[in-house]
């Protein structure tokens, strides 16, 4: 187990290094035009441009810039400075992080529970109308753009504009520490919307995985022993069938975060997704760079956590 964890951690360090390098290429080398002007906001003064050039070392060769960028990031955890809002990008992001984490974690838990339930029903009642409805509904949910589903549900259920005003609408987010009840109520809709697509994808996987497992020899053996069907499914089949679903969910964390950006935009939740959207609208490049970088790093680390937890539960995963 220790060897497995060490191997994973080393791999994650390589990946983090990759994320940092790719971000450098994307934000320093790709864009054309003066990088200082890009970072200075809409009304740059010559002094400001000179400061930025000096601070980022834009006159030096690209590898020196890269080295400085690495040093600032690793030693000082410095994500740059937003000249638009006159605040360090790091502070800005960390203020917004709780909202994104509550949205993403809640949606992940909700989608896994729904997926396992629906997938199991669809697998056990394959030919019934209920099973077909679940399978068909899953394809629709996978195909629906998350921001549009968000808009539709706001139009239907939000208290301010909804036809059936039952849930707090856009911009109603309250931090958990302020008012847990309101926090929960404001996130019900975003959670459901964000979870829908993932639940659908996982439910499909759950269905095919369970169908495959039910055809295995040990399930027949269990049945032949005279164990009740419920016990065969719950104790013998489900436990094995869930494994690929959890693996796929772990792989999907990156997509979850990308979809969370869209959900936050639609619901106006003040998380890092909305921050990214707002920064795009006002042209605040350092903030976008920071959110992309931190988001990508978070995803890589979250995958590591999922992998290790998974290996704790299922020893077979360690040998892979």
């Amino acid at each position: 187990m220790t060897r497995y964890v060490i191997r994973r951690v080393l791999w994650v360090i390589v990946l983090l290094f990759g994320v940092i390098s790719v971000t450098f290429v994307i934000f320093y080398l790709f864009p054309s035009g003066d990088p200082a002007v890009l970072r200075a906001g809409p009304h740059p003064t010559p002094q400001l441009l000179a400061t930025i050039r000096h601070k980022l070392g834009l006159n030096k060769a690209w590898y020196v810039q890269y080295f400085d960028y690495l040093k600032a990031l690793i030693l000082h955890f410095d994500f740059g400075f937003s000249y638009q809002s006159h605040i360090a990008v790091r502070t800005q992001i960390f203020n917004r992080l709780p909202a994104t984490v509550s949205l993403a974690v809640g949606a992940a838990v909700l989608s896994l529970i729904t997926a396992i339930t629906i997938g199991t029903i669809a697998a056990l009642r394959r030919r019934s109308p209920l099973g077909c409805l679940a399978t068909g509904g899953a394809v629709v949910a996978i195909s629906a753009p998350v921001f549009w589903v968000g808009m539709i549900s706001l139009y239907l259920f939000a208290t301010d504009i909804g036809k059936l005003a039952i849930l707090p609408g856009a911009g109603s987010y309250v931090p958990l520490t302020h008012n847990p009840g309101k926090w929960f109520a404001s996130l019900i809709m975003p959670w459901c919307v964000l979870a829908a697509g993932f639940a659908a994808a996982s439910a499909r996987l759950m269905r095919s995985s369970l169908i495959e497992t039910l055809g295995k020899g040990y399930v027949s053996t269990a049945r032949a022993k005279g164990i009740s069907e419920r016990r065969v499914i719950v104790r013998h089949a489900l436990r094995v069938a869930i494994a690929p679903v959890v693996t796929a969910a772990g792989l999907g964390i990156g997509v979850l975060l990308a979809a969370a950006i869209l959900t936050e935009t639609a619901f106006n939740i003040p998380g890092i997704g909305r921050l990214t959207y707002d920064s795009i609208q006002v042209g605040d490049l350092p903030t976008i760079q920071g959110t992309v970088l931190l988001g990508a790093c978070l995803v890589v680390v979250a995958k590591l956590v999922v992998d290790v937890v998974y290996a704790l539960i299922d020893p077979r995963a360690r040998s892979r």
Partner: peptide, 18 residues
Amino acid sequence: ALPLLLLALGMAAACKLA
């Protein structure tokens, strides 16, 4: 293994702003 969608988003944003 990298979160490619996020990085793609960043690339599109950088190109747009520049």
